[in-house]
Design a protein around this nucleic acid. Sequence first.
DNA 1: GTGAAAGCGCTAACAT
DNA 2: ATGTTAGCGCTTTCAC
Lengths: 334, 334
Amino acid sequence: MRDVAALADVSPKTVSRVINGEKYVSAEIVERVHAAMERLDYRHNLAASQLRAGTTSAAIGLILVDISNPFSSTLHRAVEDVFRTRGIAVLSASTDEDAARERAAVATFAARRVDGLIMMPASRDHSYLSADVRAGTHIVLIDRPPAFLNVDSVVSDNLGGAEAGVRHLISHGHRQIGFIGDWPEVVSSKLRYDGYRRALETAGIPIDDSLVARGFSSSADVEQTSRALLLRSDAPTALFVAQNALCAPVIRAIRAHGAHDRVAVVGFDGFEGADLVEPGLTVITQNPLRMGTLAAETLVQRMSGASTTPAMNHVLPTVLIERGSGELPGPFAA
Amino acid sequence: MRDVAALADVSPKTVSRVINGEKYVSAEIVERVHAAMERLDYRHNLAASQLRAGTTSAAIGLILVDISNPFSSTLHRAVEDVFRTRGIAVLSASTDEDAARERAAVATFAARRVDGLIMMPASRDHSYLSADVRAGTHIVLIDRPPAFLNVDSVVSDNLGGAEAGVRHLISHGHRQIGFIGDWPEVVSSKLRYDGYRRALETAGIPIDDSLVARGFSSSADVEQTSRALLLRSDAPTALFVAQNALCAPVIRAIRAHGAHDRVAVVGFDGFEGADLVEPGLTVITQNPLRMGTLAAETLVQRMSGASTTPAMNHVLPTVLIERGSGELPGPFAA
DNA sequence: GTGAAAGCGCTAACAT
DNA sequence: ATGTTAGCGCTTTCAC
C-alpha cells in the first residue's frame, strides 16, 4: 500500500479511501490510484484491515457432522449463497459426531474471529459456547436444538415427521415395524425414535426393543443388521429407516433377501435415486435448502444488529412423499 | 494479551511464547499464563499474528463448481481431512461454471492471503492466476487440466473412461448410441465427448449428431430431451450419460417410457442408489476421495517448500462397474 | 478533498 | 529463561 501511495503520489490514507470506496476523493486521484494498484499488482490485505478496524472478519464458520453428507452439502450450499452476495467467506469443518472435534473447530474459528457460527452440534451441552457469545460471536444451531445455551436454531420436525412415517406404515396394515436409526445420543435421532414410539403407542402396539437397531459403524454394519432382522421367524413386515445414509444399505439388504415387494419401508430423507428403485422409496423429506437459508438469514440479522428479539427455535415441517415402498400392505391391511 | 501478561505478571512476549509453545519457558510461568488466559477468557487473534509473522494465514481456498454435487462434496471432505490435521482452515466457494464468479472467489481468497488454492476451474484460460502464483499462492487444479498456466493438477481419465464406457455398449451389440452430456465448453465434458467419438470411430460407426445432447438448464430439461430421443423412430438402443447429475433424470425418462429393460445405459459416475435401480446402473466411476486427497497432499508439499519439481498432471484411472444396465444386449449382439 | 500521526494485537530481533 | 523495542499493513482521528 505504501508503494501504491508513492507511485500514485498520494498518502496511504487516500489509497485506503479509494479501496474502500469512500466518498470525497477526486475522480482523478481514484484513477491514478487504480493505475498504480494495477501496475504494482497490489492485493489488499484483509487481515491488516480487520486488525485496525477492530471488529469484523467478514467470515463465518459452518460446522457440520459431515460436509459430504448430501443433506449437509445442500445446506452448505444454501448458506454459501446467502453469504456470498454479502462478501462474507464461509469456513467449514466436519465433526463426525465427535464433541472434541467440535470444540477444536469452534476454537479455530474463534481465533479467526469469525463474525458468526452456524453449527450442527455434536456435543450435548452447548454452554461452553457462552464465552464466544459474550465475545460477540452470533450463533445459530441447525438440525438440533440448543441445550444450556440461549441461541437461535432451525430444526426439522423430527418427532412429528417420524411419527407420521410410522403412522403411515400402521395405516397400511403393519404392526411389526422395525426401527433402524442413528446413535441414540444424537438428539435428532432420539426425537425420531420418540416419534416411532409415539405412533406405536397411539395405535396400541407394544414396543418390541428387539426390532430396534440404533447406531452403526459402517454401511456394511447397517446391511448386516437389517439382514439379521429380516431372517427372524417373526421378522418385521415394515421398516422405518430414520436417517438418510441408512436407507440405501437397508434397501440393499431387503433386495438381497428378495423381499422388496413384501417388506414396506419408509425413510427419513432418502437418497438421490430413491424414486427410481422398485418400488420407489416412500420418504419423510426434510428441506435442507430452506434450513440453510433460514439459518444464514437469521445469522445475518443478528450480525447486522437489526434483530434483538429473543432467540427463536424455528421448526421446519417435514413432508411425506408416497412412492410405493411405504404403501405395501401389511398383514392387518383393511 | 496485554491484560493476560499483566495478570500473570510477565511480558506480552512471554505470553506469546506460551501460546506458541516455544521452548525455554519455565513450567511455573506457563502455568501462571494459562491461568490468566482462563480467567480473562483470552482468545488468540490469528489475524494479528499473521500480520506480524508475515507469511502464512494457515488457510487454503477450495473453489468448486458446486459444493453440493456429491462428487464435489466427497472431494471437499477429503481435502478437509488432509488440512485439519495440519491446523489449516479451508475456505470454499461455488462457481456454477461462471468464470466471473471464479475470479471473484480467487480475489476474495487472495485478500485473505490463503496459502494455497485447490480449484475446479470454470474458466478456460487460467493465465490470470499467474499473478497469484508469483505472489506465492500455490495452486492445484482438479478435475480439469490447467490452460496457459503451469501448475499441478489432478484429473480423471475422462477420455479413456468415456471411451471404455461406449466401447462396452458397442461390445454388447449397440451401434445407435446416444450421448447426454454437460456443456461442451467444460473441458472434462468435451473430453468425455471425444472418448465417445473415438469409441464409435474405432468401431467404424458413423457419428450421428442428432443423437448427441449437450448442456442442460435443469433436470426437467434433461428428462425432456431424453424422452424426445427415445420417441424417435430410429431411437438409440443405448445411452451414454457423461455426468453424474444427469443420470437420474435420464433413467427417469427411460422408466417413464417403459424402456428400462430394453435401452442400455452407462453413466459416467452415478448416484448413491445407482446399484438399487432395476437394472442396476452400469457406471464408469471416478475416485473423488483420491482426487481430493492427492490434490491436498500435492498442495501441502508445495506449501511446505519440500517439493520443487516441475508441475505435474496426475491422471486418475476410472473403473467400469457392471450392474446390468450397460449389459442389456443391442440389435447386433453376438 | 487530502494528509500526518497513532495504534490495532501480535511477534522477530535483539537485549539481558 | 524473560523483557524491550520496533513494526507488520491497514484505518481511525484529527488537522489542514
